[in-house]
Structure formats: C-alpha cells, structure tokens
C-alpha cells in the first residue's frame, strides 16, 4: 500500500513477501493442470509428470481417451498479484494414494475450486467431502470442455448434494479470463464465509 509504484532493484531491500494459496481439486482428467496453467505465469511445475505402471487400476482412462498421461504428484502454478504478493495454485494429486499430501495442501489455503467433469461427477465426491470435513471454503467449477454445458448447474448441485450457499459456476479451464473469474468467485465466497463464521468479532 505504502510503496505502490516504487520499483526497487530486486536484491536491494529485504522487503516482506507474502504468499497465498488456492487449491484446485477434481477427478482425473477434470482439467486441473489446464486450469492452473491458463492463469499461471510459469509453466506449471510438477514433481513427477508421468503416469507410472503403479497407477494402473487406480487411474481410469476410459472416459478421457485422449489423455495419455497424468500428473501423479501435485502440480502448481504461480501468479504475481503485487510487488510483494504471490498467489500459488496447487492442483491436487489425482490418485487416492497421494491423499496424505492433501493435509499439506489445505493448511492455510484461502479455499478450493473443485473442477467437476459432468461425465464423471462421482469423481468430485471425494474432494467435496474432504473440504467439508476440513472446513475449507470451496466452490464447484463445472468445466465445459467443448464450450457446451451438458447439464443444468442445479442438477449438478443436486447430484453433489451440496449446500445452496456454495457457488457453482461454469468455467472453461483453457480460458484465462474464465479461470480468473472462477478464482474471484472463490475468494469472494471465502471472505463471506470467513466473516459469517466470525460475525461476533468481525465488526472490529
């Protein structure tokens, strides 16, 4: 706030840097990596990029025949929002055997976007359950792969049986503007939640 427009040389002042984190969840092939990549300033980094033999029987390629590989570890992107503020987007590992990493992922996160593929809506149950259990604010983004929304958003809400207050938006993971709007919806919702949960103290 106090240093808007001031461009210091990178190494000069030991200024305080702040980072924030948003989690992007969803089933295998739901478009998490695409979503992260559409807004990230770096090519999404990942610890391991290839699907190994070990995941045979865990990953199901049937409904996404065009997808040959998947990330078996988490991938993430970076968005610099200000001189001293960096937002990181972390995609959840698709496989159940990496669930131990989810605790690391949600700790301190602003919230989560659950990307839903309406062809395989059941894949969204587990992330939804997890975030509800941890009390992490989340919204559902229905990824419209071919620009067409195949299902009514209310039907999706009913199928996922989630609360009316939780936003469900349609999004195109490939489109930067769409991803941006989805993230804005999430942060707005997370702030409403945060204030609502702390209403007695929020006045201060």
């Amino acid at each position: 706030m106090d240093s808007v427009g001031f461009k210091a040389p990178r190494e000069a002042a030991p200024k305080t840097m702040t980072s924030a984190k948003i989690v992007v969840a969803g089933g295998f092939g739901a478009g998490k990596t695409t979503f992260v990549g559409s807004v990230s300033e770096i090519v999404p980094l990942t610890t391991e990029a290839m699907m190994t033999d070990a995941s045979t029987g865990i990953d199901d390629l049937e409904a996404t025949p065009n997808k040959a590989t998947t990330t078996v570890a988490m991938d993430f992107g970076r968005v610099s929002l200000d001189e001293d503020l960096i937002l990181y987007l972390f995609g959840t590992p698709g496989q159940q055997r990496f669930w131990f990493m989810w605790d690391d992922l949600v700790r301190g996160a602003i919230g989560a976007v659950v990307l839903a593929d309406t062809r395989r809506l059941a894949d969204s149950f587990a992330p939804v359950d997890f975030f509800e259990d941890r009390g992490l604010p989340y919204i559902v983004g229905v990824n419209t792969f071919d620009g067409v929304l195949h299902h009514d958003l209310n039907d999706v809400r009913e199928a996922l049986s989630i609360d009316q207050a939780i936003p469900i938006v349609r999004c195109d993971a490939r489109d930067r503007e769409s991803t941006k709007q989805t993230l804005i919806t999430l942060v707005e919702y997370a702030m409403r939640q945060w204030i609502a949960l702390r209403s007695p103290t929020a006045a201060g």
Partner: peptide, 28 residues
C-alpha cells in the same frame, strides 16, 4: 524464510490477505 499467513493464527491477517488477493485477481 518469509512469514506465511495461515488461517489459524490471526484471523484478521487472513482476511486482509484474502482482500489483497481479491483485488490482485481483479487487476489481472
């Protein structure tokens, strides 16, 4: 190592962080 704002400590700080992220996203 820079300080990380987490939700547990300092609710005020977390809310401020969300505000900053929101305005940052809108500026993108």
């Amino acid at each position: 190592v820079h300080k990380t704002i987490s939700g547990d400590e300092g609710a005020e700080a977390h809310l401020m962080l969300m505000e900053r992220v929101l305005s940052g996203l809108r500026r993108l």
